Simulated scan of single mutants.
Amino acid sequence: MFGADKGKADKLDGKELVIGIVQARFNEAITDTLAAACRSELIELGVAEKDIDHYKVPGALEVPVALQALAEKGGYDALVAVGCVIRGETYHFELVCNESAAGVTRVALDYHLPIANAIITTENEEQAIARQVEKGKDAARVAVEMANLLDEVG
């Protein structure tokens, strides 16, 4: 059975992992909370604070470019994309959501590097606030678990 030799605790062991976080500044009150929850959970999972690099970019559309630069630099076991897109009155919401998600996925696949996508997309600020802490923590768990999985399968 795939992965049968590793228990859940092993999959969430962040010791010796190096993680990069790329955070969009747009909707910064929310993205700051997302990033802080992610960083806190990474540390809780055993990732050393010195092994967490954190970069900020203007918005969600710029996140994939920064992720790509980090992937090309190398040395990361996983990356985390952090952002918040709240629906407005124009089609711009769909464009930003779709293109940022496609860019994050493309970088992950092109570089064979796990990227936890914590760019939340909501109808309003209240939904974003309700999700910000748990989504940040979840992104940390995804990054650690996927880094360990890719290390396991080689």
Rank of each mutant, 00 (worst) to 15 (best):
Y76M: 07
D10A: 14
D10R: 08
T33Y: 05
G46D: 12
L17I: 12
K137V: 01
R87S: 00
V63N: 06
G136N: 11
K56I: 02
T105V: 12
K15I: 08
R131W: 09
L149V: 12
E72G: 02
A29G: 10
V144G: 01
K11M: 14
I86Y: 04
Q132D: 03
L67I: 06
I52T: 08
S100Y: 07
E99G: 02
N98I: 05
V18I: 09
K137F: 04
D151G: 13
R39T: 15
V133S: 00
D53E: 14
I43R: 01
D5E: 15
G59Q: 05
A128N: 00
D13C: 07
N148C: 06
C38Q: 09
L95W: 10
G3K: 10
N148A: 05
G154E: 13
S100M: 13
I19W: 00
T31E: 08
L149G: 03
D53I: 01
A139N: 04
D151Q: 14
Q23R: 15
S40H: 11
D77M: 03
G75T: 08
P64R: 01
E28R: 14
T122S: 10
V80I: 14
H54D: 01
A118Y: 07
G136R: 04
P58T: 06
L79C: 00
I86W: 04
E49P: 09
V82I: 14
Y91C: 05
E62R: 04
K8D: 03
V18F: 01
E44W: 03
E94H: 12
R131V: 00
V82H: 06
V47G: 04
D5N: 13
Q23K: 15
K135V: 10
D77T: 06
K15H: 12
D32H: 11
G7R: 12
D10M: 11
R87G: 05
V153H: 06
E41I: 08
G136D: 06
Q68A: 08
G83A: 07
K137M: 14
E44H: 11
G20K: 01
L70W: 00
L12D: 07
A116F: 09
V85Q: 03
